[in-house]
Computed example of a mutant assay.
Amino acid sequence: MEHSRTDQIAEDGPLLFARVLDGKGGGFPIAWKDAASWQPSAPGEVLWMHLNRTHEGLYEWLQSALGIPEPTAELLTSDETRPRAFREGSALVATLRGINFNPGAEPEDMVSMQLWSDGKRLLTLRRLPLQTPREILGQIDRGDGPRDAGATITLLAELMIARMNQSIVDMNEHIDMIEDMDVEEQHEQILAKITKIRRNCLSLKRHMGPQHEALERISRDAPGWFDADDRREIAETIERLRRYLDDIDISKESAVVLQDELRARSLASNEHATYMLTIVAGIFLPLSFLTGLLGINVGGIPGVDDPAAFWWVAGICVFVLAVLMTLFKRWKWL
Rank of each mutant, 00 (worst) to 15 (best):
residue 7 D to A: 11
residue 16 L to G: 03
residue 16 L to I: 09
residue 17 F to D: 02
residue 17 F to N: 01
residue 29 P to L: 04
residue 30 I to N: 08
residue 31 A to M: 11
residue 32 W to A: 10
residue 35 A to H: 09
residue 36 A to L: 15
residue 38 W to E: 06
residue 38 W to M: 02
residue 38 W to I: 09
residue 40 P to T: 01
residue 41 S to F: 06
residue 50 H to P: 06
residue 53 R to V: 09
residue 53 R to W: 12
residue 54 T to F: 09
residue 59 Y to G: 13
residue 59 Y to I: 02
residue 61 W to V: 09
residue 61 W to G: 04
residue 61 W to A: 15
residue 63 Q to T: 03
residue 66 L to E: 06
residue 68 I to N: 05
residue 70 E to V: 10
residue 76 L to A: 08
residue 76 L to E: 10
residue 78 S to H: 09
residue 79 D to S: 15
residue 79 D to N: 15
residue 85 A to E: 01
residue 86 F to S: 01
residue 98 G to A: 04
residue 100 N to P: 06
residue 102 N to Y: 03
residue 104 G to Y: 10
residue 105 A to M: 12
residue 105 A to F: 05
residue 106 E to M: 14
residue 110 M to K: 09
residue 110 M to Y: 10
residue 111 V to S: 10
residue 116 W to T: 07
residue 116 W to V: 12
residue 122 L to K: 06
residue 122 L to I: 08
residue 124 T to F: 04
residue 127 R to G: 11
residue 137 L to P: 01
residue 139 Q to C: 07
residue 139 Q to V: 02
residue 140 I to C: 00
residue 143 G to M: 02
residue 143 G to E: 05
residue 148 D to Q: 11
residue 150 G to Q: 10
residue 150 G to Y: 08
residue 152 T to A: 12
residue 154 T to K: 02
residue 155 L to D: 05
residue 164 M to A: 04
residue 165 N to A: 15
residue 168 I to G: 11
residue 172 N to Y: 02
residue 172 N to A: 03
residue 173 E to G: 02
residue 176 D to M: 03
residue 177 M to E: 14
residue 177 M to L: 08
residue 177 M to H: 14
residue 178 I to L: 11
residue 178 I to Y: 00
residue 179 E to P: 00
residue 180 D to R: 10
residue 181 M to V: 04
residue 182 D to W: 00
residue 183 V to F: 04
residue 184 E to P: 03
residue 185 E to Q: 13
residue 186 Q to A: 05
residue 186 Q to M: 07
residue 187 H to N: 07
residue 187 H to F: 07
residue 188 E to S: 10
residue 189 Q to V: 09
residue 192 A to K: 11
residue 193 K to F: 02
residue 193 K to S: 09
residue 194 I to Q: 06
residue 197 I to Q: 10
residue 199 R to V: 01
residue 199 R to L: 13
residue 202 L to V: 07
residue 206 R to P: 01
residue 210 P to Q: 04
residue 210 P to C: 09
residue 216 E to M: 12
residue 218 I to N: 05
residue 219 S to K: 15
residue 224 G to S: 14
residue 224 G to N: 12
residue 227 D to V: 08
residue 233 E to V: 02
residue 235 A to R: 15
residue 235 A to S: 13
residue 246 D to Y: 02
residue 247 D to K: 02
residue 249 D to K: 03
residue 251 S to G: 01
residue 257 V to G: 00
residue 258 L to R: 11
residue 259 Q to S: 12
residue 261 E to T: 14
residue 261 E to V: 05
residue 264 A to K: 07
residue 265 R to N: 13
residue 272 H to N: 15
residue 274 T to G: 11
residue 275 Y to D: 13
residue 276 M to W: 13
residue 283 I to T: 05
residue 284 F to K: 07
residue 286 P to S: 04
residue 288 S to L: 10
residue 294 L to S: 03
residue 299 G to Y: 01
residue 300 G to A: 00
residue 303 G to N: 12
residue 306 D to N: 15
residue 307 P to E: 07
residue 310 F to R: 11
residue 316 I to K: 04
residue 316 I to E: 10
residue 321 L to F: 15
residue 321 L to E: 07
residue 322 A to Y: 09
residue 324 L to Y: 11
residue 326 T to W: 15
residue 329 K to H: 13
residue 331 W to T: 11
residue 334 L to K: 08
